[in-house]
Design a protein around this nucleic acid. Structure first.
Lengths: 315, 315
DNA sequence: GATTGTTATCATTATTACTGATATCCCTTA
DNA sequence: TAAGGGATATCAGTAATAATGATAACAATC
């Protein structure tokens, strides 16, 4: 009656995401041979091919895609059973491993951590700060339960949810003629010296597109993948940078730098919440996620009102 | 990582529904010993008890109930995979086994069968006419894909959906003073000679309650579990009966009997659609179900307008 | 054409599940 | 109170299933 089993579904999901039996085998701690036989078995039982094989890898057939969708749903529900156990066995506990893009380190993360730790003292929290590619990777292979990253190209095996849209802010040193919080049209500016994150960074790509599209004059660009150093550099030189609103918010009145909403048009960054597609969150993880999401949403709303260019444009 | 497997879930569901390892083992074609070991394994892995055992049988714990809910959902989705295969492999085909309460034999079933067979010539249809208890049993153990029955006490392992509410109609021979389609208040009547289905029949129970509650005077009751004989008896004697509107509709103008909406208050019957809780319908079954449901709903609406007591009460 | 990196296959081994007999428990009944 | 019936648990042996490691076959790349 029931041909399919969970092992086969797990294999199918891994192969589908890795586009390779070999890589999938590595991921699920099995041998390529084993996967090959299991998928063969599954295909024979169902009477249709799930993957087109070649010596360079595999591509899922239509049926393979369809089954992948179902399989992730099923596996997520199965993992929910195991999470239920935690819930049923009483108080909230366990370990939550979260990835965060650097943007949220202060404005968002700190208050959430404080609150959460107070409410759920038995939950062990581990936060990793990294750029989106690293975080996506870590979530995919189960090292992290979830992460918040800037939106970018989708990684297979992840379930993503849009959280909020934030404004990007132009940051300069105090030694300029512009006044603090005055909007700026980057394309009508003298050539910029910009400190930006390196290529590959999701925000960087969006910024590059913006600079090109609106022909923003550039003097030179420095690659700095560290927020702290960037801020420091900007405040003590004529280098400038572009940072997400959420990151700037805690320092909005800091005299060491000036913030300028970007207009014509505004430059924005979208934050997305990612988690493994075929796994459900533990109760602790769910609660933590709720807090994070709430905090990010309110912070972004606040950013938009304080640093958004909406008023500037209208005025 | 993944402890639970589908076999365990299937066992859990069977045991939960049968309230017995032994009976469940029979149902899933396995031994009591095997189930015992699998559930033991599952309980140990999850770290909690799923059933409280006694020598009289077994009762699910809270955790057992919770898991049962999840398990049925998961198994339904897994069976959906297998149904997908049919769908993916092209045209609609397969075998659909439906159970029908006798009420629908003519007014509803015939047109649906005709239409469906024309649209989907490759689907093999098997219809079984029986009373609700038999149909529930057959759906539970997989002999039928689905059934339509009068609402009554819920059987575990079934997923039910309310279809429509129909009026019950008082049926007499032509040799009475009453005029055809004239509403009747049964409690203000001379003692009745009623032919009714035997006890255990779901409609009978509802009728009994009605007769008692509104103190309908009864001369005598005959138990007839055959619609055809009942109709025949009524038309040729002073015996009367109570039948669902849907059943009467095709004969509404037949001079061999008279129909009377029941008022003060109206007596109604609810139809429900049942299917196995832990299995999803094949595409063919889904299409057939849609047709049946649609037909029953329109028929009931029609019944209510033709045979309903609403107007009578208002007037 | 050698090399690298795929997947498929096969015989063997390891693991897992099932079976059937039996033990144990509890409730009912004589 | 003892016997009987019906339930689940346990155990050792067996059967079924899955994983392994080596190898083959193939395609792309250098």
């Amino acid at each position: 009656m029931i041909y399919v089993n969970l092992r086969q579904l797990r294999f199918l999901v891994a192969i589908h995401e890795e586009r390779s039996f070999t890589a999938a085998a590595r991921r699920v701690n099995a041998t390529q041979s084993g996967l090959s036989m299991q998928i063969k078995e599954l295909e024979e039982r169902l009477g249709l091919r799930l993957f087109d094989r070649s010596s360079t890898g595999v591509t899922p057939t239509t049926a393979g895609d369809r089954l992948y969708e179902r399989a992730t749903r099923i596996l997520r529900e199965v993992s929910a059973i195991e999470n239920d156990v935690q819930t049923l066995s009483g108080q909230v506990s366990g370990r939550v491993q979260v990835g965060m893009m650097p943007t949220f380190a202060r404005a968002v993360l700190a208050p959430v951590l404080e609150r959460f730790a107070r409410h759920y003292p038995n939950v062990e929290i581990k936060v990793t700060e990294a750029y989106s590619a690293v975080l996506c990777e870590a979530v995919t292979n189960g090292q992290l339960d979830m992460a918040v990253v800037p939106s970018g190209k989708m990684v297979p095996g992840l379930k993503a949810e849009h959280l909020a849209t934030d404004v990007e802010v132009f940051v300069t040193s105090p030694n300029t003629k512009r006044t603090h919080l005055e909007p700026v049209d980057l394309s009508k500016n003298k050539p910029l010296k910009l400190a930006l994150p390196g290529p590959g960074n999701a925000r960087r790509e969006k910024i590059d597109t913006y600079l090109e599209t609106y022909q923003v004059p550039i003097d030179s660009i420095m690659e700095l993948d560290t927020m702290m150093a960037t801020l420091d550099l900007v405040s003590r030189s004529d280098w400038t940078t572009i940072l997400p609103g959420c990151l700037c918010l805690p320092d909005i009145d800091d005299p060491r730098r000036k913030l300028h909403p970007i207009v014509n048009p505004p430059l924005v960054v979208d934050y997305v919440f990612i988690e493994p597609a075929s796994q459900s969150k533990t109760q602790a993880a769910e609660l933590f996620a709720d807090e994070i999401v709430k905090e990010i949403r309110t912070t972004c709303t606040f950013c938009n009102s304080k640093l958004g260019a909406a008023d500037a444009i209208a005025g």
